[in-house]
Write a protein that binds this DNA or RNA. Structure first.
Length: 432
DNA sequence: TCTGGGGTCCTAGGACCC
DNA sequence: TCTGGGGTCCTAGGACCC
């Protein structure tokens, strides 16, 4: 196999939520606009004009009340249905430029493309400009594009494209002359680099590493010793050695979280149960969409960490399920059986939620219950087999949820599939 | 008064086994 | 008095991402 230099692009929607809103309400153009989180608590998206006023990401609205009034900042509640719909179109347009295995939908507003195969065929800077124009023309969203020899470098290039007018929305570090690449890198603080957060950033500064260029010059092995393999990879990636590949098909989630802060404080256990019931339904729906089963779950509830009048209360309960499930009824029943353990009289609850964990893929899961189904053959009458299993295990144990057969040939040979069969919980594997 | 909601990966340390 | 060592699995906590 011959070694080939990789080339990646990162396409990112500018100020995504605000830009989506502007598509349908052009009056918002050229004004400072912010979009708020659930319950209108925090700022989750800002227009360029809002950023220029010094409004920070993630801070609560009440802290910038003065700026909002003084500059007539437009305030919007979030509309995730709209953003999700716009996101689908954004990714769909990009999918025309590459093969499916060369596209990674990284987030609602970011997409990686592996352009390695196109580097001799096209001028990639022009290719990217074409993408940018098309996205704006077709769906009205402004994007910036960074191109690099690794995903981290593409991210860095994207940051440069966003902040440097001279790039006209597309920055290609992959083909840039090294002296210019070094120069532009030396202007960027390490905290802007993908994978470097607050803690690492402070530690690196103490070590005398301040800019993206400094980190590029660092020794990956030395960094690995002081930090971890993760940061060592970041250094290698900045040096143009690709360590992180495109993930074109999203792998099943390892945990599913559903939680919310309450608009108003909750003190009654019934209200807590009701909220938990909502969140759990959303979590189980996502579990099923993923075709997965969970083995355990964590439920939690807490008061407001910002309340200085009362002590902070938080309770977390881990629950192991007796067998893997995606059954709404089973999960609901289990949660409701434990909710009184979360509750405490006199506590003003501000948040609760559920985490489904111990997740496994449904099609690879073979419950103990059915291990001796191995003796079934494709010629055996299914009804007889069902009776045999029922005799052995009793009705109630197999009367939950849904069921799947892993052997297609067998399904087509059977004329005896019944409704009964599909009401089972778990998976039936047949070996011929 | 008012403070988001999802996720991932890595590491260290303890329990346990032979 | 001297008190193994290697391997695996699990969990909590920390750091990061959008």
């Amino acid at each position: 196999m011959t070694y080939q230099n990789k080339i990646y692009a990162l396409i990112d929607v500018n100020n995504c939520y605000v830009s989506c809103e502007r598509v349908f309400n052009p009056k918002l153009n050229h004004k400072p606009v912010i979009v708020l989180s659930n319950n209108d608590g925090c700022i989750v998206s800002r227009s360029q004009e809002a950023k220029a006023l010094g409004i920070q990401m993630g801070i609560p609205l009440f802290q910038i009340k003065d700026i909002v009034e003084q500059h007539a900042v437009e305030i919007l509640s979030s509309n995730y249905k709209l953003y999700t719909e716009m996101s689908k179109r954004f990714h769909a347009i990009l999918s025309d430029y590459v093969s499916p295995h060369e596209q990674e939908i990284y987030s609602i507003d970011e997409c990686f493309l592996d352009l390695t195969a196109y580097q001799y065929q096209f001028d990639l800077t022009l290719y990217a400009q074409n993408m940018r124009d098309k996205i704006f023309k077709w769906i009205g969203l402004p994007v910036c594009i960074g191109i690099g020899r690794s995903k981290t470098e593409a991210k860095l290039a994207n940051h440069m494209a966003k902040n440097g007018k001279r790039f006209n929305g597309v920055c290609n570090l992959a083909t840039m002359e090294p002296k210019y690449r070094d120069y532009f890198s030396s202007l960027i603080d390490i905290k802007e680099i993908w994978g470097i957060g607050k803690q690492h950033s402070q530690k690196l500064h103490r070590m005398g590493i301040h800019t993206a260029f400094d980190l590029t010059q660092a020794n990956a092995q030395a960094i690995k010793k002081v930090f971890s393999i993760v940061l060592a990879k970041t250094v290698a990636e900045l040096q143009g050695i690709s360590c992180i590949e495109i993930e074109h098909s999203p792998s099943a989630k390892k945990q599913i979280i559903s939680s919310r802060s309450f608009g108003q404080r909750v003190t009654h256990i019934d209200a807590l149960s009701e909220a938990m019931s909502d969140y759990l339904q959303s979590a189980v729906k996502r579990l099923r969409d993923d075709q997965s089963l969970c083995n355990c779950m964590i439920i939690f509830a807490s008061s407001s960490p910002f309340d200085t009048q009362r002590p902070f209360y938080q309770k977390v309960i881990h629950i192991d399920l007796s067998e893997p499930t995606d059954s709404m009824a089973v999960i609901n029943k289990t949660v409701m059986a434990h909710i009184h353990q979360l509750y405490q009289e006199g506590v003003a609850f501000k948040k609760c939620g559920i985490i489904l964990t111990g997740i496994e893929n449904k099609v690879s899961y073979i419950p103990d219950l059915f291990t001796d189904v191995d003796v079934m053959t494709k010629n055996e009458n299914l009804q007889i087999a069902i009776e045999r299993i029922k005799d052995k295990f009793g009705d109630q144990k197999i009367a939950l949820g849904s069921c799947k057969i892993s052997h297609e040939a067998w399904i087509t040979n059977s004329t005896h599939l019944s409704q009964d069969y599909f009401s089972w919980d778990g998976l039936l594997t047949i070996h011929q």
